[in-house]
Design a protein around this nucleic acid. Structure first.
Lengths: 141, 141
DNA sequence: TGTTGATAGTTGCTTTTGTAACTAACAAGG
DNA sequence: CCTTGTTAGTTACAAAAGCAACTATCAACA
């Protein structure tokens, strides 16, 4: 790379940012408009819906989200009546988080929307490029 | 995409976010540690260094950054003595922004660091994948 | 039992972003 | 001149993120 000719518009971190902002803006409108949720709330909801009841700590590790963000997302989801908490009997520091019916419904709707979004993107890019893209992104993350 | 099997870890917006966070964290350490700059400040500095003096509005359009973010970045760069402002004679609403020597130095250092970073990434991924990645990201952004 | 260290989760404070409203300057038409 | 509408840039307030300190609980061991 010639330093004199360096262009921000082809700098990979910049391109990644632009693409990520663009793409996540589209899908975030879905959970934001439908349920007034934030990104972290959607991710927490997803983990509980997809993998079943677990503690905040487990979500934090599995989803690579800082525990304070998880804590706030859990409170928000609780206020929406999307999940319930139950203090563990073995260790009273931990809480078992479980989706409530409204949370299950939201999970179903949002997961379907995400799958549709993914399908649409795959159609746009074509199956080969879609595969390449995912492989490359996983290598970077 | 089968909805029952939907996995967040292969959802493109999620992957993009993870990759973008990971990659920009690496480079942001450079301008943050060296000059205490934020991402927007680096981008504004870059545009002035690469394309010469221009107004905040022009930067805002070229770099796709909201004018309030540009305004705050310009103030921060001014306080660091990295740029100077001069009210336009033709239209006194506009200010011509120019890099000062310290800003030029920072631009040179950071541009070189960015080019090095890009080279290292290209080495890691290989030239073919690097080309693919950029093409795909540009298609998404 | 009592101390020490670790862990789950929360809270407080500071920094950053988003959004809308604002000021000052311009331009065009009456 | 004097409205009316537009534009460049700033400011104010609210939403959100980052980080450190805190509480409560547990476990281990003297």
């Amino acid at each position: 790379m010639n330093r004199e000719d360096f262009e921000l518009s082809v700098f990979t971190p910049y391109l990644l940012n632009q693409a990520a902002e663009q793409q996540s803006r589209v899908f975030s409108n879905t959970y934001k408009n439908l349920y007034g949720m934030l990104q972290t709330e959607w991710r927490v909801l997803f983990h509980l819906g997809r993998y079943g009841a677990m503690t905040a700590k487990e979500i934090s590790i599995r989803a690579s989200i800082h525990k304070t963000k998880v804590s706030r997302a859990v409170r928000a989801l609780e206020q929406k009546r999307f999940l319930g908490r139950e203090v563990s009997h073995e260790d009273r520091r931990m809480e078992r988080l479980t989706l409530r019916p409204a949370g299950q419904d939201a999970f179903n709707v949002l997961t379907a929307a995400a799958a549709d979004y993914e399908t649409a993107l795959a159609t746009r890019l074509g199956p080969e490029d879609m595969k390449h893209l995912k492989r490359l992104l996983m290598a970077l993350a």
